[in-house]
């Protein structure tokens, strides 16, 4: 599966447009990490637990988007974007979306 932010890839030709595919997830860390992060807030610095949380959420959202693309028979997702929103305290929603296509060598 080819994933790209571009709309048009060099040396490739879109032969089939399969519509929008999207993946989203809302994740949280366990309470222990939330408490640790609130301590870290006092001293400042990287909240590693939350960096990790966002990374996991992006990966999962991307995986789900790819799973949707695979189910439509695409071999690439173009013009991928990410969006995020806050649903609950200490939880992050990550949303990845793009256009599923079938690409061919030009």
């Amino acid at each position: 599966m080819l994933l790209s932010n571009l709309e048009i890839l060099p040396n490739k030709r879109v032969v089939k447009h399969l519509g929008l595919v999207q993946g989203s997830t809302v994740r949280a860390k366990h309470a222990g990490k939330d408490i640790l992060a609130s301590f870290k807030n006092v001293f400042g610095g990287e909240l590693k637990a939350y960096t990790e949380l966002m990374q996991e959420a992006r990966d999962e959202a991307l995986q789900r988007m790819v799973a949707q693309a695979e189910s439509t028979g695409a071999n690439a997702v173009l013009n991928i974007r990410f969006a995020t929103s806050s649903v609950a305290q200490g939880a992050a929603e990550l949303f990845a979306y793009g256009t599923a296509v079938v690409l061919e060598e030009r």
Binding site: H17, G19, T72
Partner: peptide, 11 residues
């Protein structure tokens, strides 16, 4: 152009 049904239960 096609707009196939996407499998349920992914998101």
């Amino acid at each position: 152009f096609e707009n196939p049904e996407i499998e349920d239960g992914i998101n």
